[in-house]
């Protein structure tokens, strides 16, 4: 295992300590229970928090700040955080207008957030939850744990964060969040696996000419293994199921999000974006907004995911609104 770390069990805490110093103008980091909270919390607005396993950086801690999240709860690598963290973060950001929990649909995340919400409610805090589940790689989801929450989570955090910043109440924030989730779809693939520090070995093995299609963001194997293919074919493999699922239609305006899994260089993400743009153009779907970069990752995994979000005017306005976090910043 080749990593820039000291000891596997300290990676998360040390990275949090680094973040606290590097972004001291934006965030505070609280330890035991661990959470990252926006400077000056609570603010006089709906509090928006998220959380999940570590290893997906910059998500979620990199999205704490003006116009996005009020707090983020990092678990161990790829392990959902514990209720104590979400409870403490919920209390820290509650400005009296209630708190929205943004939860990615994984059994562990859902259960831990659920327990935290019950505890917060018992302390008299109004909590609403939205669960993202945009991963079209998971089929037959009716009888199973359902689809995973992946790329849409980033877009949703930005859009709902802007709504909360603008003064929307908890019910409105939840409704917008659900609308974003309902209009977003994602799919990902991996060229290489990644290694959980505490595990010390890659989660799976891939031959030089193989790739995994339909992966999530936890270094897990995907739905199927395929022969390595040109960017053009990989783009079709990912975009096809996404487009059919919603379905996205001629005339739709979308936010096109090409996301790197952590170990993929930007030059390849732009090659993939170029392919996605071509596919969308062929179907007469307009790219109204774009995001290209590594925003929701699986440690050092090489790979890419596509997320398409069908936009309406309100979503565009909220996407464009100012944001100032360690990883996303514009308008201020």
């Amino acid at each position: 295992m080749k990593k820039l770390i000291n000891a596997p069990e300290n990676v998360v805490k040390e990275a949090l300590a680094g973040m606290a110093i590097a972004h001291a103008d934006l965030i505070d980091v609280h330890f035991d229970p661990d959470y990252i909270v926006r400077k000056g919390a609570p603010h006089n607005k709906v509090g928006v928090i998220s959380g999940g396993g570590s290893g997906h950086e910059p998500m979620h801690g990199g999205f704490v700040g003006y116009g996005m999240l009020d707090a983020a709860c990092p678990g161990a690598v790829f392990t959902s955080p514990v209720p104590d963290q979400m409870l403490a973060a919920t209390k820290a950001v509650n400005g009296g207008k209630g708190v929205l929990h943004i939860v990615k649909n994984y059994t562990g995340d859902v259960m831990n957030f659920e327990m935290a919400a019950e505890l917060a409610a018992a302390e008299g805090i109004e909590v609403a939850s939205v669960v993202t589940n945009d991963d079209v790689a998971v089929e037959n989801s009716t009888w199973t744990a359902g689809r995973r929450g992946v790329g849409v989570t980033v877009l949703l955090e930005k859009i709902v964060g802007a709504a909360a910043e603008a003064g929307a109440d908890l019910a409105t924030c939840k409704a917008i969040a659900e609308r974003v989730n309902a209009n977003g779809r994602s799919m990902g693939m991996a060229l290489t696996p990644c290694t959980v520090p505490q595990a010390g070995k890659p989660g799976f093995e891939l031959a030089e000419d193989e790739m995994e299609v339909g992966i999530g963001i936890h270094g897990e194997p995907g739905r199927r293994r395929e022969k390595l293919a040109p960017a053009r074919d990989i783009a079709e493999m990912l975009a096809g199921p996404i487009l059919e699922d919603l379905p996205f239609k001629s005339g739709d305006a979308v936010l096109a999000f090409v996301n790197g899994m952590g170990g993929t260089p930007l030059i390849e993400l732009y090659v993939m974006y170029n392919e996605l743009a071509r596919i969308l153009k062929d179907r007469n779907i307009t790219i109204a907004r774009s995001l290209v970069g590594s925003y929701i990752t699986s440690l050092e995994m090489a790979g890419v995911s596509f997320t398409l979000l069908r936009l309406d005017d309100e979503m565009i306005k909220l996407w464009d609104a100012p944001v100032h976090t360690p990883a996303l910043r514009w308008g201020m």
């Binding site: 161990a76 790829f78 392990t79 959980v196 070995k201 989660g203 799976f204 194997p221």
Partner: peptide, 15 residues
């Protein structure tokens, strides 16, 4: 952890 790596996310033992 190895069992979890095969069909999950390689953290069950550490957890």
């Amino acid at each position: 952890t190895a069992l979890d790596a095969a069909i999950g996310d390689a953290d069950h033992g550490a957890n």
